[in-house]
Simulated assay, not measured.
Amino acid sequence: MGYIYGTFPVFNGGEEGAIYQLNVATSTTRAITSGFTPQGELGKMTLGNDQMIYFSERNINYHIGKIDPTSGSISEIPIPGTVTSRMLGGITTDKTTGLIWLTSRVYDIKTDPENVRQGIISYNPATGEISEYLTASFSPDNPGDITVDNAGNIWFVELSGAGLIRFTPNTQEFSYYPAPLNEDININALTTDTDGNIWYTNTYYNNNAGAIGKFTPETGEYTQYSEGILNGPPSDIVIMNNGAIWFNEHSGQYLGTLDPDTGYIEEIAVNIPAEQSLFGQGDLCLSQTSSNIIWGCSAYAITSYEIIDQQ
């Protein structure tokens, strides 16, 4: 429909959070503040198969947010449970099943504060069913970003970034893949390629300059690509239709691209004033209507970058 949506992630009693809608055709934005509890820190977004936009509400308010792009209205889907503390993290859509997946961390402050569990939540937009899959069998850290591979496996990262976790829906089993102890790895954002490899941004590698990493499930191998990153570290990551890896950097002044066949990384100056650039710690997404436009958004602006040469 020609709109870009972004979350303004304010929480802990500060200014009210909002959803911002950009009309690409007119370059106008508007803030949507009604329809959700503003005290919940607003997280990432995903486009569902039903063409609704879903986002996570974390920290204070444990809901899945839902935007109807046709009407612009926002509603909330409560997550059932009796725990007194739940942290929601990343969110993604399984395009095959239509399920919305989120990462979750729960514990009961009052009755069982030591039993911290983490895992994932699935939401079925067609039926309204919510299922929670939690485990305490590995490091009970806050789970972060999440992605789905072509086989339907769910992958997510510990917030500490020390490893990847795979959840197999058919068997409801978790598998943990810790990063090598001799590697400086702090995984931030995730995505998958058509071969089933997990690509991620690494904010610690090479004296904190960062790297782009690849995890190969068949071998369990972590591979780091850092040569060419001069203004990092990387933040979010997307894969174009031609397989090229694109990422933003915390400085906000550069986009990076990686050729997965050669490992070659190129940084591209965006030539946007630092106070206006949202190619920093904000999230990236690909245009739904054009294969060569990358969008970035965060608290202050929405930014687009058109890739002229994809060869």
Rank of each mutant, 00 (worst) to 15 (best):
Thr216Arg: 11
Thr216Trp: 12
Thr216Asn: 12
Pro217Arg: 15
Pro217Phe: 13
Pro217Gln: 12
Pro217Lys: 15
Glu218Ser: 15
Glu218Lys: 15
Thr219Phe: 04
Gly220Val: 05
Gly220Thr: 03
Gly220Asn: 05
Glu221Tyr: 09
Glu221Pro: 02
Glu221His: 10
Tyr222Lys: 06
Tyr222Thr: 15
Thr223Glu: 13
Thr223Gln: 15
Thr223Ile: 13
Gln224Trp: 11
Gln224Cys: 07
Gln224Ser: 14
Gln224Gly: 06
Tyr225Arg: 06
Tyr225Ser: 13
Ser226Asn: 10
Glu227Lys: 13
Glu227Asp: 04
Glu227Phe: 03
Gly228Cys: 04
Ile229Val: 07
Leu230Tyr: 11
Leu230Thr: 01
Asn231Arg: 10
Asn231Ile: 01
Gly232Asn: 08
Gly232Arg: 14
Gly232Pro: 02
Gly232Thr: 05
Pro233Leu: 10
Pro233Asn: 12
Pro234Gln: 14
Ser235Pro: 04
Ser235Phe: 15
Ser235Val: 11
Ser235Trp: 14
Asp236Asn: 12
Asp236Ile: 06
Asp236Phe: 07
Asp236Tyr: 11
Val238Asp: 10
Val238Trp: 02
Val238Phe: 03
Ile239Gly: 14
Ile239Lys: 13
Met240Tyr: 03
Asn241Met: 06
Asn241Lys: 11
Asn241Arg: 09
Asn241Gln: 10
Asn242Phe: 00
Gly243Val: 02
Gly243Ile: 00
Gly243Tyr: 00
Ala244Trp: 02
Ile245Gln: 12
Ile245Val: 07
Trp246Leu: 01
Trp246His: 07
Phe247Thr: 15
Asn248Gly: 03
Asn248Pro: 00
Glu249Val: 06
His250Pro: 02
His250Arg: 15
His250Thr: 08
Ser251Cys: 08
Ser251Gln: 06
Ser251Phe: 03
Gly252Leu: 08
Gly252Ile: 09
Gln253Asn: 13
Gln253Ser: 07
Gln253Ile: 00
Gln253Met: 08
Gln253Arg: 14
Tyr254Phe: 15
Tyr254Gly: 07
Leu255Gln: 06
Gly256Asn: 06
Gly256Glu: 01
Thr257Ala: 10
Thr257Cys: 03
Thr257His: 09
Thr257Glu: 07
Thr257Met: 04
Leu258Cys: 04
Leu258Thr: 09
Leu258Tyr: 02
Leu258Gln: 09
Leu258Gly: 10
Leu258Ala: 01
Asp259Cys: 08
Asp259Gly: 10
Asp259Thr: 14
Pro260Gln: 01
Pro260Ala: 00
Asp261Ser: 09
Thr262Gly: 08
Thr262Leu: 00
Thr262Ala: 02
Thr262Gln: 03
Gly263Met: 02
Gly263Leu: 01
Gly263Pro: 13
Tyr264Val: 15
Tyr264Ser: 15
Ile265Glu: 03
Glu266Lys: 14
Glu266Asn: 12
Glu266Tyr: 03
Glu267Met: 07
Glu267His: 07
Glu267Leu: 04
Glu267Asn: 05
Glu267Tyr: 03
Glu267Gly: 04
Ala269Cys: 01
Ala269Pro: 03
Ala269Thr: 01
Ala269Ile: 01
Val270Gln: 07
Val270Tyr: 12
Val270His: 13
Asn271Ser: 05
Asn271Val: 02
Ile272Ala: 08
